[in-house]
Design a protein around this nucleic acid. Structure first.
Lengths: 158, 158
DNA sequence: ATATGAGAGTCAAGCTGCTTTACTTAATGA
DNA sequence: TCATTAAGTAAAGCAGCTTGACTCTCATAT
């Protein structure tokens, strides 16, 4: 499959950005349809960053690549909407452990299913082999651009 | 080329976003080194949107997917920094034609060269064939996600 | 001729999500 | 015991955008 629409002449960076934007838009739209209109993409990243064991706001900040104040504001928002709880940290100190509520855990499963079906639909349209190639090549690209070092946080602005 | 670093297990959307972010970061960094530290990626998009003939702020707004006020602010900034000029529009009215200065035209060439050499370096590292495949598959992906319709503007937030 | 409305531009205020600055509190350890 | 370090929070500020309101210019209809 290819096109005579001049789309193939675009810059690589432009294509990457456009593909990402289109995919994330569709994901967000389907999430909203599923009842998660109060969650932005960054909240899903926060859920991933908190994990099953939870984490402190400062740890969250590091993983998201923002200040601890910004992370605190994100946690405030998620707490108000019932997705996380602040608990006293088992290791004491001023620390608080931010943990996902069952609501957030359900969301993680639903979001996973949405991504899965989105990818399946794309596979039907562009071919499963091409989709597999895309995964592999993107992996190579990321490795090339990070020199094998750690992955930077994915940030919602550029 | 592939890795045992678990990178291949990431979500497609995450990989796309990360690849885009890494590429655009490197592009911006090299642009800054070349003396364009006052330009953000959106300014390059504006240059493209204005084109050789120029355009009105309202047309620019449509092409960038922002309000005409936001486009006006972008034009203000670019004008202050010498990249565009507001001229009376040949078709009269209240319209003003925003045109690129020679400074902006030089930047377009420099930016093009940076993207070109970046892509060449990536081709050396991941293989020219893979890079070609990436282009083709991204094109297919974008076509699938837009149903062949027009491309939406690439926006700097998600 | 005159009125009406559409389109372009701009000023001003407001909003969102982030940063910077500054402070308090709790644990560590010299 | 006191200095240091780290977590959390509060407040102010900032960047980039939107919304709202307005003016100016031209086209069109009456």
């Amino acid at each position: 499959m290819n096109g005579d629409d001049g789309l193939d002449d675009l810059e690589l960076a432009f294509k990457l950005g456009l593909a990402f934007q289109l995919l994330i838009s569709e994901f967000t739209a389907r999430g909203a349809e599923a009842g998660y209109g109060d969650l932005r993409p960054v909240h899903g990243l926060a859920f991933q960053a908190l994990g099953a064991e939870g984490a402190t706001s400062s740890e969250l900040a590091q993983r998201l690549g923002v200040t601890k104040q910004a992370a605190g504001q994100i946690v405030d928002y998620l707490e108000r909407h019932g997705y996380v709880e602040r608990r006293p940290h088992p290791e004491g100190g001023r620390r608080k452990l931010v943990v996902l509520t069952s609501t957030a855990l359900v969301h993680l499963r639903v979001a996973g299913r949405i991504l899965q079906s989105l990818e399946a639909e794309l596979g039907d349209r562009i071919g499963a082999a091409e989709l597999g190639d895309l995964h592999a090549i993107l992996g190579d690209l990321i490795r090339a651009l990070t020199d094998g070092g750690p992955l930077p946080p994915l940030r919602p602005v550029w």
